[in-house]
Design a protein around this nucleic acid. Sequence first.
DNA 1: CTTTTTCCAATACGACTGCAATGTATAGCT
DNA 2: AGCTATACATTGCAGTCGTATTGGAAAAAG
Lengths: 191, 191
Amino acid sequence: MPSKVDHRERRELLADALTRLAATHGLAGVSLRQVAAEAGVSTGMVQHYFRTKDEMMTFALGMVADRIRARSEAEAAAATPRELVRGVLLQILPLDETRRLEGHVGLAFLAYAAVKPAIQEGLREGSAGMRGFIAGQLRAAGAHGIDTDLAAIGLMALVDGLGMQLLSRQFAEKDAIAALDAHLDLIFGGS
Amino acid sequence: MPSKVDHRERRELLADALTRLAATHGLAGVSLRQVAAEAGVSTGMVQHYFRTKDEMMTFALGMVADRIRARSEAEAAAATPRELVRGVLLQILPLDETRRLEGHVGLAFLAYAAVKPAIQEGLREGSAGMRGFIAGQLRAAGAHGIDTDLAAIGLMALVDGLGMQLLSRQFAEKDAIAALDAHLDLIFGGS
DNA sequence: CTTTTTCCAATACGACTGCAATGTATAGCT
DNA sequence: AGCTATACATTGCAGTCGTATTGGAAAAAG
């Protein structure tokens, strides 16, 4: 057996091709053959690593989520809670080309998951963790008489919304950052 | 010519079938034949009213947008600016079953439009109008030293994000409303 | 060595897709 | 009555889809 292949690595290679396709042609343009072509391999190989299409989709979704999470955690060295929260949230916004790509993928997957409740479960725990983290930081900053849980929900919703509208180019990126900062001012009692 | 038929009406009938499909099976499950079956007509008739699939999609998207806008305008009788803004924004959130349906459709279309820049144009003017309206209301309320344009961007982003996360059932509806109210408190100088 | 197991390529299959072409019935106009 | 334009139905086509199957190369195991 040519066992010298790293399964994880191959699957990520394919999932990368998948995300590239999803970002440029939408999830509708994602098929086994297209993924194989984009990755420069045969459709048989794709089938070898993902027995079904749903399995491939699920893996790719998880991979994107992991990468976003990893980037956020890498940002976890900041002085004040406010800067920490800001840094993490900025990682979510599609401010450069690679994050725009990931944003498109995330949006496509969200619409995909909206129909497949089994996938929503994975999403839920991820965002719940992020919410708890933000609420904790708000408390650490000594938020002045706000409901920190509610504020965390609102803050994450704001960032998600900003990201969505950035993807469809509703306004400039600097406006999005300004809106986020304005909101942080309100919450952290800025100026 | 066979009896006078209202084109608009027929197209809306088909677009309704399309939105029903999109809400339950996702946009991926939308095909000419499926739409025809859902509407109880032949595929030939669908082709008669929409020469191409993209034409059908675009019409359906516009229809959904129009309905949301109409519902929002119907809400336009309220005492204070804050109540007015709140009422309009609540129309966007998927708080009942029909709005959940529309939300799914909107999300699916958003992911669809993310790849087709031609469609983004239509979205843009709609949301820009809403943003201007909200900014105007904020000024009318005598917002205390905030940048009203920025606040409008943030408010709409918040509502969009809340809506998205409600669709994937990240938290309860009352939490979404509470988060919205908390944000309105911050902006309008609550308490 | 042989055997077995893994990796992958190729191909076939049935279902489905968007779309075009064609057929037919009806209703208004002249 | 005759013609034409509209409204739909039916059918066919070329292509893609996800999946199953088959087969062969290559390396580990015996």
